[in-house]
Nucleic acid binder design. Structure first.
Length: 609
DNA sequence: GGCGATACCG
């Protein structure tokens, strides 16, 4: 890189001319001193380089009495000094002289480091650079980068490292913005920045941006690898776009990149977590597909399926898989056991859960915090608070520290069993145990107060949590909305929905369903249907609970034909009626002599559960 | 740089 310094001025800009960067300098205070400074510079530059390389900073400082530190940086850059020496000077002058050099020079330095392939130095530089509170905008950064050099290759490498630095420092939005700018400038990024960017966007649930980056990568011919595709598939699965996820697998084939076990595991998990008809059947189909493609299931595959069957209230299928896993020479791990113990607890089979808890050690597996949490929760579900507390007290002796979820589990149990005092005592003991209470911790307490009908105290607790810097979340609102509905104050509850929008919270299915239930209980079907419309306008499709709530509401009003229509509609939409649906139909329709069209289907539901 | 388990709301 060639840098021309316009004589007798301080830096205020730069320009590429004839492939060389010209830095314009602002005039010094007096033109006389300027002339002498520059003369002395040309004489002292070699001396200064030497002083810098030896880190004789006090002598460097003495020289800088007559010279502007930024002008010296310019000279070092234009004299093609060793990039290491320039970097050393740059860092020292920023730290000791509190100088903030112009962006162009910072990127000039990076370009000079690029010429010697000192990439780790560039990475480290950018890592610190993006942590700056007064970070420059991406628009000025890219402008500076582009005017420093027209070497596309070096610019691309620096831009790539910049994106990565943003992502590593959790500044995902800026990383995404830089990704877009890099495209505008024609800089070619690589999977080394794009994969972490995609991964961070998935974690932020910004799936629209994930799809954008993915499409752009294809358009810009940024070479992807199997991880690129796996991350995108995971993002799409998280928001239920399973068909799109399958399309990505087709893209992989087009790129000639083979799928691997993670690809299939991700997709299987996507199906397991999606509540549609025959989801486990579909998950199983993918398992067969992967084997047909010579990709063999590993422990994680089994863990995903075991958890899926447990959540599908089919623990016996989960247990069979547990046996199969071992038959295939694979070893269950702590996650496998945690899923099974949790599944057994949820199915009310506490005895079997405890049996399994004992067997774990025989398998050579150590329990972790989650193991404790799930069994504690199992005890709590059976109102065995004492046993849950014993487990809690037992943890430390086994070298395990309770986490926020451990506390939440026990606090919630206290709240639900009329032991508010114990709940508050436990909550206030959290900090001294080094665990920060979360919004969810307060949610447990708020729920407890609401059960006692003390909505006033609940609202007061919200102020307390916000004082501690914890924001009420959508669950907090769900609890309050539910409590108001219970008291026959659905109108007031509906107002909270608007409050949620105002504070930037997005109501969930539970929020809408709770409110609909409130209106249904008051016999206000019109208001309930209105809530459903609001919900679907927000892009949330009715789920099984929505239908259950509405069907029950219509039945109670004697509108059995309308209820029957809703039953048909839910099936058409691919939703699985559950045990609650069956109970509603039996109690509210069949006992009154009305046989719904989907009776046979419901019969299957009733015998399987 | 990618996949799996737990609590608070219907």
């Amino acid at each position: 890189m060639d840098i021309f310094i316009h004589r007798s001025s301080k830096v205020f800009g730069g320009k590429i001319f004839d492939g060389r960067l010209i830095i314009f300098l602002r005039p010094f205070c007096s033109s006389d001193s300027t002339a002498s400074t520059l003369t002395s510079h040309s004489l002292t530059i070699p001396i200064l380089k030497d002083l810098i390389s030896k880190q004789h900073w006090s002598e460097v400082k003495a020289h800088l009495k007559e010279t502007d530190p930024t002008a010296l940086l310019c000279h070092l850059l234009s004299s093609k000094a060793d990039p290491e020496i320039i970097l050393r000077y740059y860092n020292w002058s920023q730290k000791e002289l509190k100088i903030s050099h112009p962006l162009q020079l910072s990127f000039g330095l990076l370009h000079s480091l690029a010429t010697t392939k000192s990439y780790s130095k560039i990475r480290a530089f950018l890592h610190k650079f993006v942590q700056d509170e007064n970070l420059h905008s991406n628009s000025s950064i890219f402008h500076a980068l582009s005017i420093c050099s027209n070497k596309l290759c070096a610019n691309s490498i620096i831009a790539d490292m910049l994106v990565l630095a943003y992502v590593r420092n959790l500044r995902t939005r800026l990383g995404f913005e830089a990704f877009k700018r890099a495209g505008d400038y024609g800089f070619r990024l690589s999977m080394f920045s794009c994969n972490p960017l995609l991964s961070a966007l998935v974690k932020d649930n910004a799936i629209g941006d994930v799809e954008y980056v993915y499409k752009e990568m294809m358009r810009r011919r940024i070479e992807p690898n199997v991880i690129t595709f796996n991350v995108v598939i995971n993002g799409l699965c998280k928001v239920g776009k399973l068909n799109k996820a399958r399309d990505v697998i087709e893209d992989m084939k087009a790129w000639g990149i083979p799928t691997n076990v993670v690809t299939y595991n991700t997709l299987i998990d996507g199906y397991c977590k999606m509540g549609r008809v025959g989801k486990m059947y579909k998950a199983d189909a993918i398992l067969k597909e992967m084997v047909a493609n010579k990709v063999f299931p590993n422990e994680v595959t089994y863990n995903i399926l075991i958890d899926g069957f447990c959540k599908d209230e089919n623990v016996s299928a989960a247990k069979k898989l547990f046996e199969e896993l071992q038959r295939r020479g694979l070893k269950p791990n702590v996650v496998t056991c945690n899923s099974l113990i949790n599944g057994l607890c949820c199915a009310g089979k506490l005895d079997e859960a405890i049996e399994f808890w004992d067997e774990m050690l025989g398998l050579g597996l150590n329990r972790n915090v989650v193991t404790y949490n799930v069994l504690m929760n199992g005890f709590c579900q059976k109102k065995m608070i004492k046993e849950a507390r014993d487990l809690f007290d037992d943890m430390r002796g086994h070298g395990l520290a309770p986490n926020a979820i451990t506390f939440n589990t026990l606090i919630d149990a206290y709240c639900k069993n009329g032991m508010m005092e114990e709940a508050f005592v436990l909550q206030s003991s959290m900090l001294e145990k080094g665990v920060f209470p979360l919004a969810s911790t307060y949610n447990c307490l708020i729920g407890g107060l609401c059960i006692n009908g003390d909505i006033k105290a609940a609202r007061k607790l919200i102020f307390e949590m916000e004082d501690k810097g914890l924001r009420a979340d959508h669950i907090t609102y769900n609890i309050l909305i539910g409590a108001l509905c219970q008291e026959g104050e659905s109108r007031k509850a509906a107002k909270l929905l608007n409050v949620m929008f105002k504070v930037g919270l997005s109501p969930s299915h539970v929020t809408y369903n709770t409110l609909m239930d409130g209106f249904c209980m008051e016999g206000n079907l019109k208001a309930a249907l209105n809530v459903r419309m609001q919900m679907e306008n927000k892009g949330r499709r009715a789920n099984v609970v929505t239908y259950n709530v509405l069907i029950k509401g219509f039945c109670r009003k004697g509108k059995l034909k309308d209820a029957n229509g809703l039953l048909n509609e839910m099936l058409e939409r691919g939703l699985i009626p559950n045990r609650t649906t069956y109970e509603i139909v039996r109690e509210e329709m069949m006992e009154k002599g009305f046989i719904p069209d989907i009776e046979g289907h419901l019969y299957n539901v009733s015998i399987s559960s």
